[in-house]
Design a binder for these strands. Structure first.
Lengths: 229, 229, 229, 229
DNA sequence: GATGAATGAGCCTTCATTCAT
DNA sequence: AATGAATGAAGGCTCATTCAT
């Protein structure tokens, strides 16, 4: 009965799609709520309501609140790790760094809650901190530090200050999203609007150029028409 | 009966002192716990245990968990507001800004939990956000922005990017403390050790000088003995 | 798929029935406990245990202890209000009054806790007192007073004593149930046994006849077969 | 040193007086609060505040909340028991009963909370119920029943209804005070005002006369000018 | 897969009671 | 005698989680 099989298969596919859809909806809702209240402060029902489901239904997808939390963290960290791997193949020069920053900002634009999530986790000194450090933060920092070290134009900084420069870029990118609610409340513009994100991206770019004037001049020379990427 | 009165008064003073001592202990413990878990994630018993008191005793000092939270916020914000007012009397020039940054860093060094506390609160989008913005963040931002505007050496930045510069200093100072656990886990040194704080302070100073090269040179000239540490 | 729908509907009906059953069980248990201890003196767990449920489950049915209390009051008052409305259509004469008393006693017999509940509430001077007065007590009093006023045989009482006569009937009916535990402890018979209630009902009836001797004689005349039990 | 002794004695007397004064204040406040909320529903601090004392101070006078409660009950019951003993010496006739009712109402007028207190206790089926029945309620009922039994004019009631007549007097006297808040809310006059109490007393008196018409006529004859007591 | 009902654990808060002063 | 501080024991209510349907 190939027909039946066909139907069954089609039905299965449809079901799988629905499941995947629901799962993504849950992750999205969870990310948003976790980003605001943290793991301990978040109530499962909040996530369920934000997803439009009954609280008990979540347990058909994730065995516990913390498992869901880990899934959210994992989903958020993975593309950044991938991004970094992609870049680690390329050359280590100013242009690459600028592009990396742009890419990171672009990714964060699509996941505006993620920064808050990891800031929260970073501050909580909780059980996920070391994982977070190992999988996400350390590679990112090392990548940036490595780039700075290899730079032909040496920064005239004390020894041991390179990590601080790297951290500055973290602050300026992730911190921009993390503090967004406060910035929004204070300033007139929304930091996570498309315009706000683009402006911050350009600002970081300018910052880089200000810190590496020689390189900047060289870069400028090699692209006389301007790099409006 | 002067003796009796005297004794009574002494006893009262002693009692008042003990009360004040306990109150400070509660605030300190609460600040530490709130800074890690946030308002929603903190359990009153945690604070009580950290203070060495019974949970019920806290309610002799503060009528509710959120009232205690507000008191902690208030106590943390006040000295910064005062600091700002002190500086607002002084001249608006590069040296002042550098000094302000140093002072802020110095204050945060003494209250390493405060940065995390307000980052948490900023991200929670809770009911204290607007108060925090009005009383603490807005004045600080305006002060910095004003200083940048009045600067004789114009930053060659797009319009509307001044707030981002100001925010950068926030990120680099408050963010340094907020992300300290993660930085510590990743790097080899403790960011909130005396050395770590001093290094970050010098780093921000360097950053300022890099952004205002003209002013920097002038400042250097006017202080022939050199304060380059 | 009529079958499936049918099953679903049956299942839903069954569920609804179970829910209604549980709700009634909760109200019954709550009524009994509230009648003994009052709102403030009652512990939610007592009600839960009396219902055979976990304390938390009650909150699936009523959002708070006081909401449950209000529901109990409401359920108790409603049939009495309805009873009064039924009677308000009938003629205002002695027989009607006697019948009303009998009906009220009969109702109270089925809800022996209700009298205690409202006595408790009446004495507590709490927030429900005015509602209780408006919805239940005032109409009842007015009904009785009206009947007495319209009576062809005027009671030879001072002006303004009519309410006291009405109140006397309240005392004799509701008070009988309210004081039942004490009466039981003191006398040999149980006041809320069928016999005890019937006896008190006959007693009130006798009381009425004693207060209206003329009417009593007339009533007796018009019912030659005699209903003297 | 007789002087010193004298002074000491005076001081002691003054102190004793102050103590007695405070103790009475506590009992009064406790009676009022217990009458509204019952033992379980009353908070010690409420009583303390009503007395103008600190909660802990009460424990210098009574070892526990329930001990205070018992003292309040005891104080309320005793004068009624005494009253009954006084009357038990006198003759058992209509006039005596009328006088007893008047005396009871007069006593209750001075302790308007007491009725509520014992109604509350009667309904709670608590541990004090049997004591209350034995010491206060049973003697009172027996006294009234005895009087009715000895009456030369037999009430034409079924057997076993005598206790109900006795209970009716309880309802009409104690119940008047117990339901006072509800009656006040419903009617225009305050049942526990001097006027309200006098009126209810006269009403009960009338009720007695209505139930014993022969006796009433006889009584009337022997006091031609009327008994405006 | 989805849900309402149920529950044990735990949270914030209150309360009766004790104690040092 | 009087009080503020302290506490163990609840008390009301919430929450993560389970289960029957």
């Amino acid at each position: 009965m190939p027909d039946e099989n066909g139907e069954t298969q089609t039905a299965r596919a449809a079901q799988a799609e629905r499941t995947a859809f629901t799962e993504k909806a849950i992750l999205d809702a969870a990310e948003a709520v976790f980003a605001r209240r943290g793991l301990a402060g978040t109530r499962v029902r909040e996530i369920a309501e934000a997803t439009g489901l009954n609280g008990a239904t979540l347990y058909n997808y994730y065995p516990s609140k913390s498992a869901l939390y880990e899934a959210v963290l994992e989903r958020g960290v993975k593309p950044l790790v991938d991004l970094l791997e992609t870049f680690s193949a390329g050359p280590r020069e100013l242009e690459t760094t600028r592009a990396l920053v742009a890419e990171v900002m672009c990714h964060l634009a699509g996941h505006p809650n993620f920064s808050r999530l990891i800031y929260l986790e970073a501050m909580a000194e909780g059980p996920y901190l070391s994982t977070l450090a190992r999988k996400w933060f350390r590679p990112l920092m090392e990548r940036i530090i490595g780039e700075l070290k290899d730079s032909p134009e040496p920064l005239d900084l004390e020894d041991g200050m390179l990590p601080l420069v790297a951290a500055l870029f973290i602050h300026a990118s992730f911190g921009h999203f993390a503090l967004a609610p406060l910035l929004h409340e204070t300033l007139d513009t929304d930091p996570v609007s498309t315009e706000g994100i683009e402006r911050q991206t350009r600002f970081i770019d300018t910052l880089i150029l200000k810190m590496f004037p020689l390189l900047a001049r060289k870069a400028e020379a090699s692209t006389p028409e301007g790099v409006d990427d």
